[in-house]
Design a protein around this nucleic acid. Structure first.
Length: 396
RNA sequence: GCGUCGGUCGGAUAGCGGCUAUUCCAGGAGACUGUAAAUCUCCGGCCUUCGGGCAUCACUGGUUCGAGUCCAGUCCGACGCA
């Protein structure tokens, strides 16, 4: 993998660049499409490609459980198996430390809106009994979400699995924490993530035969001193690039990204893990993130929500039943060019599978294209104007 | 005409003398940020000073401290017999 910066944002940390992999180039900044189980839900790779996506991110935990990383190896790797021949990423399974841990069976999101009350703490207590993970210094015991069977991930194991899966860019094994975790816990988990980063890197260096790139992951929650410490420690390790992970406060994701990116080495790419609301993309790019991934566009699509330039809409609302106009104004995606709100409304109400496909195409196009527009605005030195104009309309 | 069974929210249901009338679907709204997710949450008689108050199980009476539930009659429906 090779990364180059072509231009930097004036009065900001942003950059325009490109990541070159043996499976193709990613022009950054870029929105990476999530395909957890080696498929972008509801879409064929041809559809993903034709809506403009440059790369796909799959998940180590899920593919390890099903169909198994050895099967992917036999299939000739992720690209061949899923018939996506562009660049790919795999997440390390570190997010599942959170989603199947304290977040299991709860409403806790990795993005906190600030207010934490006693009810939440009570909920966390309950979840400690239900959770499917147990974390110790050496690694994480996971229970399978498929059949409840027990599995153990260590940094070495995660990298071994990712080598078998064969994505172009892979991530160090980390622990994604809850935004509600205490400072003390964030610090403890961060220290563990740093030790795991070193072990991930060591294992990778001595076993990487396929020119895969390894990204280290910065943690530290919402605390400035921890974020900076993490960026320094991870940034000094010999990774090919970096992920910025973990939990954030909704209002200052960008602030935290800025703290980190001022410390990380400039010449290597930075991936902001799991972030992807329009406002977050502007904030992340402005503060020096190069790539993003997020389940939101495909998940909310399947649940009937669509991005429009005037904000999110719920196509299941009664007002769309007889709306034969446009879904999103002058949008040129396949869905908008060919179908009306009334038709999508019908497909969702009738629970037809095409609903998920058409909505996913639109939402992915919306975000992929938004990042491309942001990139273009940076090239043309009008990033701030574009940001003000877009967000002013989106959140009006 | 006789007999049997039955009428509970838009539909389908539970409820077998007692407290807030159950559940599913349809309907209305909301949520979703490195996917446990084609998922989840809330609303659904009227009034309210937000404490609560008043209704309601086809209809009319009755029994009872208390009735969707028991009794009688009426209306409606299904089935059976003529």
């Amino acid at each position: 993998m090779k990364f180059s910066i072509e231009k930097e944002l004036e009065n900001g940390r942003g950059r325009i660049g490109k990541i070159e992999t043996i499976h193709g180039v990613i022009e950054t900044p870029a929105f990476i499409v999530v395909g957890t189980k080696s498929t972008v839900k509801a879409l064929t790779p041809e559809q993903v490609s034709s809506l403009g996506a440059q790369a796909v991110l799959a998940n180590t935990y899920h593919l390890y459980l099903q169909p198994g990383d050895n099967l992917l190896k036999k299939a000739g790797g992720l690209h061949n198996f899923m018939n996506w021949h562009g660049p790919t990423f795999t997440d390390s399974g570190g997010f599942q430390a959170f989603s199947l841990g304290v977040a299991y069976n709860s409403k806790v999101s990795k993005i906190s809106n600030g207010d934490s009350n006693s009810d939440d703490k009570e909920e966390i207590e309950i979840n400690n009994h239900a959770k499917l993970v147990n974390i110790d210094e050496e690694g994480i015991d996971f229970k399978s979400v498929i059949d409840g069977s027990a599995h153990r991930f260590t940094p070495e194991k995660s990298i071994e699995i990712q080598h078998n899966i064969g994505a172009d860019i892979i991530f160090a094994f980390d622990e994604c924490t809850s935004p509600q975790a205490s400072y003390e816990y964030q610090k403890e988990a961060m220290g563990r993530t740093h030790r795991w980063a070193k072990r991930s890197l060591d294992y990778h260096k001595s076993n990487n035969k396929n020119a895969q790139a390894l990204f280290g992951i910065v943690q530290g929650g919402r605390y400035e001193d921890l974020r900076k410490e993490s960026a320094k420690i991870i940034g000094e390790m010999d990774f090919d690039g970096f992920g910025i992970g973990g939990s954030f406060d909704k209002e200052d994701i960008y602030t935290a990204v800025g703290w980190v990116n001022d410390i990380l080495p400039k010449g290597k790419p930075r991936h902001l893990l799991g972030i992807g609301e329009p406002i977050d993309l502007f904030g992340g790019i402005e503060n020096g993130a190069d790539t993003f991934d997020c389940v939101a566009p495909t998940r909310i699509a399947r649940n009937g929500s669509l991005y429009t330039k005037d904000g999110r809409i719920n196509i299941l609302n009664a007002k769309y039943v007889e709306d034969f106009g446009k879904i999103d104004g002058d949008c040129v995606c396949y869905t908008c060019k060919n179908y009306t709100p009334a038709y999508l409304s019908h497909l969702f109400r009738a629970k037809e599978m095409l609903a998920a496909t058409l909505a996913s195409i639109h939402n992915l196009y919306f975000l992929v294209n938004l990042v491309k527009e942001i990139r273009k605005s940076m090239i043309e030195n009008r990033f701030y104007e574009f940001k003000t104009e877009f967000l002013g309309r989106y959140y009006r």
